[in-house]
Design a protein around this nucleic acid. Structure first.
Lengths: 210, 210
DNA sequence: GGAAGCATGTAAGATGTTACATGATTAC
DNA sequence: GTAATCATGTAACATCTTACATGCTTCC
């Protein structure tokens, strides 16, 4: 357990700021709300709650239920509310991270050729467009509710990004070499491509920015 | 060490497919190429190499250097080449994952108000646009080299997505309520917003699709 | 009345990160 | 000639996921 609280901890507090909840309810709420841009699994929720309780940022009350299993319902403490708001306006933001297996495949796409890559791209586009349709439905629901404008902003993000990705798949399909050929391109000028990719300094790789 | 190989393992093999490398060189190559869409830290590279070697997918040779520390240089074995290509065309793709702290903040943006959110959005836009400029430079370099078209496709992805995100920040800034007001909106209709967000079934949350 | 699913939660283990170690080499 | 950086790598730890456990309810 580290000392500094990261995004996951604050995300749990953010959800609790909407309503007191048990670990189970929190995990479900997380799955239905922030999981698209900040996934948190159920066991993570429970361990975050422990940590936050130890720090006095949340407090749990036992609730006895007769039909369902008993539970502990957590709420933000005043210190927790403060910690959440401080984090919200902190000027230093944790960086975004993207994990996109298709792009790893794309980088070595020459190994399987343009046709196989078009298959992969097409499948990805279909998945992304389905997600996009779900987000559109959601957007319509939220558009009707003034109080939901911040929630709606997160949905808009998804709409923009899924559109951009679908667009990208089409552009790349057009761009790929017209080579249904069986020439095995392995080892060709591949090293070159990798070297070129790394030919610009990465962000943060040097102390002095330009 | 799990049995099934995941994206990280295959990413290491993908990089080795360009050229044999030591763990250190691999980690640096990863940082300069795939880290934008599949970050791998140095110790991860080393543990993947161990795992892959145990499976006979890569093999390492000791190389003695006199000026620099000795090293082990790894190369793909024929079995490794096969495993990589099988993975490339496998129809079932691991899902993409996004981790974007700003969206967590956005969801509870009502706590700090529109002005504070505009600050955050502006800062994010500036960072994204800087990244975008780097990618543009990179794209120009790659555009000149026919062999780099797959590498270039990954850069194009970044270009599309950064443009979409920059766009989103502007749209949201316009959309936010004109409320430089001090009315503390806490607890208002917040629960409602969360409930609405979760009002559609999440992907994969039920077995039957539509 | 059996199967599936829900509401609660935990244990075990894999994945991933931060920080350290060390000797050479370059930079000023 | 000291400070920073590079090339190599490892140890310790934090984060996150997969799988399990349990008793009720609902479904057909």
């Amino acid at each position: 357990m580290s000392r500094r609280l990261l995004t996951t901890s604050h995300a749990v507090m953010a959800l609790l700021s909407f309503a007191p909840m048990s670990g189970y309810q929190l995990a479900r709420a997380a799955d239905r709300s922030i999981s698209r841009f900040w996934p948190i699994s159920k066991p993570q929720v429970y361990s975050e709650l422990q940590r936050l309780e130890a720090l006095g940022l949340v407090e749990g009350n036992d609730v006895v239920q007769d039909k369902l299993p008993d539970k502990r319902v957590f709420r933000l403490t005043p210190a927790g509310e403060r910690a959440l708001d401080d984090w919200l306006v902190a000027d230093q933001l944790e960086p975004s991270r993207f994990r996109i297996p298709l792009l790893v495949k794309t980088l070595v796409g020459h190994r399987v050729g343009a046709e196989a890559m078009r298959e992969l791209l097409g499948a990805y586009r279909r998945a992304v467009e389905e997600e996009r349709r779900r987000l559109e439905e959601l957007d319509e629901v939220l558009a009707g509710t003034k109080e939901a404008s911040y929630a709606r902003a997160t949905v808009l993000f998804g709409l923009k990004v899924t559109a951009a990705i679908a667009d990208w798949t089409e552009e790349v399909e057009r761009m790929l070499p017209q080579e249904p050929v069986r020439i095995d391109p392995r080892r060709a000028r591949a090293v070159n491509a990798l070297a070129l990719l790394g030919s610009l300094p990465r962000r943060g790789s040097s102390k002095v920015r330009r």
